[in-house]
Design a protein around this nucleic acid. Structure first.
Ligand code: ZN
Ligand code: ZN
Ligand code: ZN
Ligand code: ZN
Lengths: 150, 150
DNA sequence: ATATGATACGTTAAAACATATCATATGCAG
DNA sequence: CTGCATATGATATGTTTTAACGTATCATAT
C-alpha cells in the first residue's frame, strides 16, 4: 500500500472524526467550514489565512478573508484546529483530547514544518512552574520553535 | 524603603546590565534603542510596537513605526527583549541567561500581564518531547497562556 | 583631502494579517 | 408559513510588520 493511500485514509478518518464531533455537539460543519478543514488536513501542515483564501477561491468566486477567518474561528472553538501564533498560521489538531497532556507544537524555524507531541511530563512541569508564577490554570497548548534533525 | 524606590533600583540595574552586555559584545546601544528598552523596563510588562511609537514620540517629533521595529529587532537579537507572539507585544527579558533553563512567559489571558519563570525541569521535559518529535534543538523560550490566581 | 565601508536612522510605501459593518440567504422551531 | 437565529456575501477598514531607497555619521584606507 502506497504512502499516498495511507495518507488518504488518514485524511478520511480526520474528516469523519470532525463530522462526528460536530454532530455530537450540535455544531454545524457547513460546506465552507469543511472545505477549510479539509484543506488544512490535506496540506499536512500549518497554512496562513490568506493562503487558505487563495486555495479555496476559484476563478469565478473569490472568498473574502473574513469568510476564512470565520471558518477558522469555528474550527478552533470546536477544538479541531490550532492557531500558531509564532507563524500566523493554522494547523489541524490531531490526537484525541488527552486531557492531562500538554499539546506541544514543535515548529521548525526554517521550514515552518510542525510536529505535535502530547506530553504529560511537560504538562506537570509547566503546571509546577505556573504555580510558582501565581497562575492557577494554563492552556494545554504550547508552541516551541526549534530545528528538525536533518 | 518604598516599593517605588525598589523598582527604580531594579530599573537602573537592568539598564546597566543592558549597557554592559552591549559593550561586551560590541553592540551599540544607541539612544533610540536605549529609550525603547527603558520604556519596556518602566512599563513593567508587555507593550505593543505602536504603543511604543506613541510613548516615545513628542509633539514635535513623531517616530516612524519602522524605527521602533528596528530597535526591537536589535534588542531581541541581543537577548534583551522577547516578542510575545500571542499578544503582538514586546517585553524585557530579565534574569541572567540561565542556559539550561526554559524561560517561560506566562501570559494572563485576560489582562495580558506576564510573569517569567525559568525552569530546568520544563526544559528537560520539553527536550525529551522534542527528541520524540525528531527535533534536535529547541528555543529556550516559551509562552503559555493561563489565568492568574485572583 | 578624498574615497570607501559599515552602521544607524529617516521617509515612504506596501505587504501581511485580522476585524467591523451591514445586507442577504438559509436553516429551523413554533 | 412565519419569525428568529445563524451563516455567508460584500465591502471597507484597522492593525502589525517589512521592503525599498535615501541620508547621516563615523571610522578607516588611499
Ligand atoms: Zn470563537
Ligand atoms: Zn492537538
Ligand atoms: Zn534581527
Ligand atoms: Zn527571559
Amino acid at each position: 500500500m502506497s504512502t499516498k493511500a495511507l495518507r488518504k485514509e488518514e485524511e478520511d478518518n480526520l474528516l469523519r472524526r470532525a463530522d462526528d464531533l460536530c454532530r455530537q455537539n450540535n455544531l454545524r460543519l457547513t460546506p465552507i467550514r469543511e472545505r477549510v478543514y479539509r484543506e488544512l488536513v490535506q496540506s499536512g501542515g500549518p497554512v496562513g489565512a490568506y493562503d487558505l483564501v487563495d486555495r479555496l477561491s476559484s476563478e469565478k468566486k473569490r472568498l473574502a478573508p473574513v469568510t476564512i477567518y470565520r471558518a477558522l474561528d469555528f474550527l478552533r472553538d470546536a477544538g479541531l484546529v490550532h492557531r500558531l501564533a509564532t507563524q500566523n498560521s493554522y494547523v489541524i489538531s490531531h490526537g484525541q483530547p488527552d486531557v492531562n497532556a500538554m499539546k506541544i507544537m514543535f515548529v521548525d524555524s526554517k521550514t515552518g514544518e510542525t510536529i505535535e507531541v502530547h506530553s504529560t511530563e511537560v504538562a506537570e512541569a509547566v503546571k509546577k512552574a505556573a504555580e510558582q508564577a501565581g497562575f492557577k490554570s494554563v492552556s494545554p497548548f504550547m508552541e516551541v520553535e526549534g530545528e528538525i534533525a536533518q
